[in-house]
């Protein structure tokens, strides 16, 4: 749940980029880091190997500016994709307000995508979070590579709940901000619904 500080009028939301290893989660954050002006972002923290396999997590804080008089900030995290880092994934997922699931569109990665998506649902449930209510968007990444599944095939594989989904080529940056906007909107809208309830 987003943290709302009424005294300093700040909203802080945590968004986690989830997905199998090498699907492009870190690349998403790197692209955002490179594009956002320095006064709108903090340092990008990467606990990674020399070729960017995430060991623990990547972290990038963003400042969205003022919304309704509230200074609104996002904390973007990635999780490590390797199956055995499940304990770490659970830690990073803790307290998430929204999840971007970054899927690898290559045909050869089908099983990895399904496995990772399942793992996400399991880990959310384990933390008492209903996967049907927490904001999740899908990003079908690497659309520019040869031998990728069609969008319909990807939907059949992962999107049986009709979640918002975005095509992306995260290395080139295409679709990265569309995805971020999509999840931001959902997370903040959910927050405004909470305000709504509070008003009633």
């Amino acid at each position: 749940m987003s943290l709302v500080n009424y005294s300093t009028r700040e909203i802080t939301s945590k968004i986690v980029y989830y997905g199998p290893g090498r699907s492009g989660k870190t690349t998403n954050l790197q692209y955002i880091h490179a594009q956002v002006p320095e006064d709108r972002r903090g340092r990008m923290v990467s606990l990674a190997t020399e070729t960017d396999r995430t060991l623990f997590f990547d972290f990038l804080p963003l400042d969205l500016g003022s919304i309704s008089g509230f200074q609104t900030r996002f904390q973007l995290y990635t999780v490590p994709g390797q199956v055995y880092y499940d304990a770490t994934r659970k830690l990073v997922l803790q307290g998430a307000d929204g999840v971007v699931f970054v899927a690898d569109s290559q045909r050869a990665q089908q099983d990895e995508n399904i496995e990772s998506f399942r793992n996400l649902q399991v880990n959310l449930l384990e933390q008492g979070v209903d996967p049907r209510t927490i904001p999740i968007v899908l990003q079908y990444n690497k659309r520019d590579l040869p031998d990728v599944l069609s969008l319909d095939e990807m939907d059949d594989l992962l999107n049986y709940r009709d979640l918002p989904r975005y095509e992306a080529r995260s290395l080139a940056g295409a679709g990265v901000f569309d995805t971020l906007r999509g999840i931001s909107e959902q997370v903040l809208r959910r927050l405004s619904q909470r305000f709504g309830r509070a008003v009633e």
């Binding site: 880091h33 490179a34 340092r43 990008m44 500016g65 679709g175």
Partner: peptide, 22 residues
């Protein structure tokens, strides 16, 4: 599609350089 008014492209990609420096 990624173009945005608020997010003017900075001069250079920093990638993970700022990384563990934090």
């Amino acid at each position: 599609s990624t173009g945005s008014a608020a997010l003017a492209p900075p001069p250079a990609a920093d990638s993970t350089g700022g990384g563990v420096g934090g």
